[in-house]
Design a protein around this nucleic acid. Structure first.
Lengths: 214, 214
DNA sequence: GTCGGCGCTGTGAACGTGCTGAGGACGCCG
DNA sequence: CGGCGTCCTCAGCACGTTCACAGCGCCGAC
């Protein structure tokens, strides 16, 4: 919590601690910014009127530095544009003084509920990397251009590295099941991939299928 | 948006659409719940007093079903416990009627930001900058004039820089779900953006979608 | 060594996907 | 009512992708 009015800060700290929160209080803007940077907190309650650095500016700097800590802003200003400004600086919620303690608590809980979502994984086998979201494949950090079918095939194989995958299985999962496709198509596309990724990345297991070398 | 007062719903829908949001309106609780389940929306504006199913109950059911759609709750009740109840049912924000349109917009933006993996108030990719609050786009510090649809499309892409976004996903999030729009419309608007922002800012990934160059 | 079958690859045709200019529908404003 | 801007459909075009085909080489069995 960043709040310079000691009475209010004390009352809030006690209340929040009684609810089971671990609370630290900073009294100035710079102290608050510093704490937010290094403290590893789950959320921040932030007054707008602060000595040294305004709450608006504090959030703006935090966001500019790629810190995405949830911020609940507290202010005596209740003009609609003050509120909009605070939110547009990067705050996640905005409460005007005087506020109800019950409401503050509920809003804080709502804020904490929304944790930061995690990034989807990228598949890696040897020096091969495949990023499904970016739809990018690199081999030893060099980008490889793949067509849609090639990409889908490599994707499927990279999710089963070292396993033998039969042509039938590949036809079922990589090709559209509704159209009958000759197993030879798989051979053709394995050939394309070998040309683009290197000859020995895809091993042929005669009579059984293909295997991605680990 | 789930709102049974047609006058209010209409006014809001128009306002939001002018800002470039894709908006659908449901008039009853059950209809709203259904839309939230299947619509693939980015956020929901939800009235508390609804025929069929209250807003509280709607959120509670949604959360019970593991849907984490951001919800902004709208209510005529301004008691502190009403507000706390709404938030504790699973809503992410709570606004009491009468409310300021400017504040609603700012809170909606904050809510959408919160769902994203990164939450800058101003989006920046390369020398492109997009300010959702001011509805302005600059390229190398020169302002670029965009229509509402162009802006919404660029906004969506800039929130996922480097990621491939399919035409279907774009139709779902940038265009209204209520009207059936041909995927070709996306191609047309990508074309417009390329003309205004530079040819190579938007990459085509054949068979997959589009990607904003980082 | 011989034989049969599986897998590889070059060729080419059909197909799909994406881009663009033209233009109609619609709403807004004077 | 007319002018304007926006939105979106349509049709034509260009080009990359997909896959069947056929011939050949290689592998393993005997």
């Amino acid at each position: 919590m960043v709040e310079d009015e000691t009475r209010l800060a004390d009352a809030l700290r006690r209340g929040l601690q009684a609810e089971g929160f671990a609370v630290d209080v900073a009294a100035t803007g710079p102290a608050g910014l510093d704490a937010a940077r290094h403290g590893g907190y789950d959320a921040m309650i932030l007054d707008v009127m602060l000595p040294g650095l305004s709450g608006y500016e504090l959030v703006r700097r935090l966001r500019a530095e790629q810190h995405w800590l949830p911020v609940l802003m507290l202010s005596a200003k209740d003009g609609e544009y003050d509120q909009a400004d605070g939110l547009d600086c990067g705050a996640d919620d905005y409460l005007t003084k005087p506020f109800s303690y019950v409401v503050l608590l509920a809003r804080l809980r709502a804020l904490l509920r929304r944790g930061a979502p995690e990034r989807p994984a990228v598949l890696a086998v040897g020096d091969l990397r495949l990023d499904p979201a970016r739809r990018r494949v690199t081999r030893a950090d060099a980008e490889v251009a793949l067509t849609a079918r090639e990409f889908a095939l490599l994707d499927y194989l990279m999710r089963r590295p070292g396993q033998v995958v039969s042509k039938i299985e590949l036809l079922d999962h990589v090709w559209d099941a509704s159209v009958e496709t000759a197993p030879n198509a798989v051979e053709v596309y394995v050939g394309y991939l070998r040309r683009k990724l290197g000859r020995d990345r895809l091993e042929t297991v005669r009579g059984a299928g293909y295997r991605l070398a680990t």
